[in-house]
Every structure is written in C-alpha cells, then in structure tokens.
Amino acid sequence: MRGFYAGLLAGIFGGTTLIITLIVAEIIRTGYVTIVQDFMKPDVLRDYLIYMVGYMAIFGSISGIFYTIFYNRIPGKGVKKGIVFGCIIGLLSNIWMGFRHYLIGLFTGTESYFISSFALIWGFEMWFVYGLVLEPIYKRLNL
C-alpha cells in the first residue's frame, strides 16, 4: 500500500507539473508550442488540468504498486532509483506511444507527428517529475 499512496501523490504532482509547464510554454509561445496548443482540443485548460491530475493519480498509483514489487531490482539509490523507475515507465508508455504515432505519420503522411512530439516531450517530462518525487515520498510514508 505504501507504493500505491506514494504513486498517487507523485502522480498528482507529475500531472500538475505538466499543466504548469504547458501554461508557461503557452506564455512563452514559441512556434513549436503554438502547434502543440492547436492540437490540444479541450478548450478550457481547467478541464484538462482536472483530467490530467485525475489520470496521473490513477496511473501513478498503479505504477506505484509496480514500484513496490520491483523495488529491489531497480538500479540506483535514493532519488536516482525513483528517476530510473520514472524513466522506465516513460519509455514504456510515452516513447512507445510517440514512436507508434511517428510511424503512423511516416507511413500515412498524416498529422500524427504532432501527437508523437507531444507524447515524447511533454509526457516524458511528466514521468520524469513523477520519478523525481516518488522515492522521497515512498521513504517518508510509514504505512
């Protein structure tokens, strides 16, 4: 249960960080960010925030259970352990997702590239932050 609660909190943190990053990126408004923002269909950012935080809370807690199961096998110590785990989850989910859409875009000539870049950059960043806070929370929880 320790991993579940640590993952839940880390997931909420990761999801919120993603939204903050998107807001900052929107303020900076480079050409690339404009493309990403055009792709984001939800009109209100608040709705997207609620969805992403809820989504990350669910998947963060599920990943937290996996973190407990494979804890001794994950290389590194302290914060590094959490970061390695976050990066593995990012690789299996976001890199897989981004690569899939990249190939679809490559073979069919469609706009899947946008989903690909979004999944690769922003999604991976979210899991990195998740991993960064996971181990300290996991250590502090005394369940």
Binding site: F39, M40, K41, P42, D47, Y48, Y51, F59, W96, R100
Partner: peptide, 9 residues
Amino acid sequence: RLAVIIIPY
C-alpha cells in the same frame, strides 16, 4: 494508458 489518454482529445 494510450487508450485512456486519447479520451480528452
């Protein structure tokens, strides 16, 4: 996870 993340889009 990919199936669920597509919902808000």
